[in-house]
Design a protein around this nucleic acid. Structure first.
Length: 288
DNA sequence: TATAACTCCTGAAGGC
DNA sequence: TGCCTTCAGGAGTTAT
């Protein structure tokens, strides 16, 4: 599933492929692809003739800066694939952007992803995302917090926000308005590295524990980024169709019923927020 | 206002 | 072989 490292890998590939090029055509093949777009499909078609100034990312959101932003979210299964010449149209191709013969296909099996024409709002004076110095932020991304790899994030501030929450720590980690970029996989990994049970109350954790947790989150994502992201199947590939390798380094996610790599205790898998959560009951004791 | 639950969606995998 | 059920989960919407 695309989380921050996967989206950053795709952003970098997209930037190198289309920066400075002019959008010459748009084809949309599925009604859900533009469901959140301002002016629907017309809002996206109106960008034809515009030039790519940057490809920017905040958390799991990215946007192509055409002067106006085209926001891209990959959902659970979205892929962006670059082809020179006409792209082959597969059964899950939801849209194709044409840049004078170089085509970008938006492929999305589960249709949770989308393309969204948006407008810029004033930001906080610092670069709004990775990939551009521009401070304005797309209106549809304005509610998304800075991510853990953002140089303008302050761990002390997000730890303070976290301690005000009266819910479980993993819920807070998945809340993109507190800190963005973390999904289920990297939450489990960061919690495992920090030795914190996913159901611990956020308000019961110390500042030191929380800052340690966020630093582990940063480390996990940097490690994943170095390896091109996490792949379990064909649902995540970079813009060239290649898979990442970080799944070979996972210590928690997907290891329910298997021995903990640190202590040997059987890892537990529990239901959490309509999804799974895997942890070691010895290394990550529940208390509070 | 904060938190929790529900919903969207498709295809792989497993059971029968 | 074919049908049915379960599972995966990001994020917006709705309910409490």
């Amino acid at each position: 599933m695309p989380e921050l490292p996967e989206v950053e890998t795709i952003r970098a590939g997209l930037e190198s492929g289309i920066l400075g090029r002019t959008l010459t055509g748009v084809e949309l093949y599925h009604p859900r692809v533009a469901r959140r777009s301002e002016n629907g499909e017309h809002g996206i078609h109106d960008l034809v003739g515009s030039t790519v100034h940057a490809v920017v990312r905040r958390g799991k959101y990215m946007w192509i800066d055409f002067g106006q932003p085209l926001v891209v979210h990959l959902g659970m299964s979205g892929q962006l694939l670059i082809h020179d010449g006409r792209a082959p149209r597969g059964p899950h191709t939801r849209a194709v952007l044409d840049f004078s013969g170089r085509q970008v296909s938006f492929v999305d099996q589960r249709t949770f992803g989308h393309l969204q024409r948006s407008t810029y709002l004033p930001g906080d004076g610092h670069p709004a995302g990775y990939g551009s110095e521009r401070t304005e932020i797309p209106a549809s991304v304005a509610h998304i917090a800075r991510d853990l790899l953002d140089p303008w994030i302050h761990l002390r501030d997000i730890s303070a926000t976290t301690r005000r929450k009266r819910t479980e720590i993993k819920r807070v980690m998945l809340d993109q308005t507190v800190v963005s970029g973390l999904g289920n996989i990297y939450c489990d990994e960061a919690l495992f590295r920090a030795g914190i049970h996913p159901r611990r109350k956020a308000s019961g954790l110390s500042y030191i524990s929380l800052e340690t947790l966020w630093r582990h989150g940063q480390d996990v994502m940097r490690d994943a980024l170095d390896q091109g992201g996490t792949s379990f199947d064909a649902l995540y590939v970079n813009v060239n169709g290649a898979s990442g390798y970080f799944d070979r380094s996972l210590n928690a996610y997907g290891r329910g019923g298997k021995p903990c790599l640190r202590c040997g205790t059987t890892m537990q898998k529990i239901e959490f927020m309509n999804r799974s959560s895997t942890f070691c009951p010895t290394c990550q004791p529940y208390s509070g």
